[in-house]
Design a protein around this nucleic acid. Structure first.
Lengths: 206, 206
DNA sequence: GGCGCTTTAGATCGACCGATCTAAACTGAG
DNA sequence: CTCAGTTTAGATCGGTCGATCTAAAGCGCC
């Protein structure tokens, strides 16, 4: 029976299974790619019937959302403290790049899976999604990771030259995401050294 | 009957159909994404039976290869002359960025389709492909578009500071590819202005 | 120890996939 | 006009997909 709390608290089994399914789904996506990943293959990896996965997640979209949520939570936990420790915009930019590549190197499969989802996912009408949906509680912390406003703050404080904030943000995000793809292509790629090059490049650029 | 040439010259119908199918495939991929694109949907867009597509292309892979070939050919035709007109490595870097973003803005759907393929495509074992296969005849010109060796040449000539050529190449490729994704997310994104920002950023960085 | 909720396996559904086959329609040279 | 080669439409194949349903098994509480 459920606990005597209000009826919204999940069972122990429920939470463990969901976490197990999410973990296995991340592995499968990182291995064979999101496009080739099916609920059947995830269930096979977990070692249960496919109906079990769809019992714990209403449909495929909800499973994908849970994967993204888990990744965002760990990324925020790794990066936000590093940014909060910096007083200047230039310092926060360095911390953003360094904590980002550090997260990539320590959470490789998780990041690859989420990036693959973000690049592959389309709505029913074929539109890409701007951002994977996350819990409302994460929005505040996610705002701290908005590069464009970080650049603007640095410009207002006179730390940065007056470049186009959006363009440089797009460029840096592209450079960071490409680090994940490069790691997928060549597992020996040194992501941390790459991050230090980015620190130099974007320090000179701003 | 076929022409009196040796038997490898395609019919007029053959070449026209292949070109038509490739063009429609690019449209479909750009609209709904490579993952959701099927031979059936391409055939529907062309207005023929699915078997017609598979009559002109042995299988899906050969069709994808033809799409990539067409895109590479037009990209090489647009970018290589711009690079050849420059005498210095710094000039070639500027020409690379400017001709690249110009190509993106003039061949948007084509570039989006090929990038989508490159990001989505996996081998049977799940590995990404490093590079889409192209005609041997294109390899020479494609080598001129290798950013890493461009950076190395500039360093040997003393034009560039001694940064890690591969890292900066990965960063620039990521920044340029992200321009295509940003355009997909926001059709109003000014790719040419973005390119000028990149010229400034990577001039300062090198 | 039996009851009720949770969780499971397995069968099944309709849909779409890439690929193949057959036969008909088309086309141009003789 | 005839006929061989080219190109087409349409049916069909085996397979995988996400989703649903049913019935049984598991399990904590009384």
């Amino acid at each position: 029976m459920r606990s005597n709390q209000r009826d919204d608290s999940p069972t122990f089994t429920e939470r463990a299974r969901r976490a197990q399914i999410v973990a296995c789904a991340i592995e499968v996506i990182a291995e064979i790619g999101y496009a080739q990943t099916s609920i059947r293959k995830i269930a096979r990896r977990v070692g249960v019937a496919m109906s079990v996965v769809l019992y714990h997640f209403a449909n495929k979209d909800e499973l994908v959302r849970a994967i993204a949520m888990a990744a965002y939570r760990s990324a925020v936990a790794a990066m936000v403290p590093a940014l909060d420790a910096e007083a200047t915009a230039a310092g926060r930019l360095r911390a953003y790049i360094r904590s980002h590549v550090a997260f990539i190197s320590t959470h490789r499969t998780q990041f690859m899976a989420v990036l693959d989802i973000a690049l592959s996912y389309r709505s029913a009408t074929g539109h890409r999604l701007d951002q994977l949906e996350v819990d409302p509680g994460l929005h505040g912390d996610l705002a701290k990771l908005d590069l464009e406003s970080l650049f603007r703050q640095g410009q207002e404080a006179g730390e940065f030259r007056p470049f186009d904030a959006r363009s440089v943000a797009v460029a840096l995000r592209g450079a960071l995401n490409n680090a994940v793809l490069e790691t997928a292509r060549d597992p020996g790629f040194d992501v941390l050294a790459y991050g230090e090059e980015l620190v130099v490049v974007f320090a000179a650029a701003t």
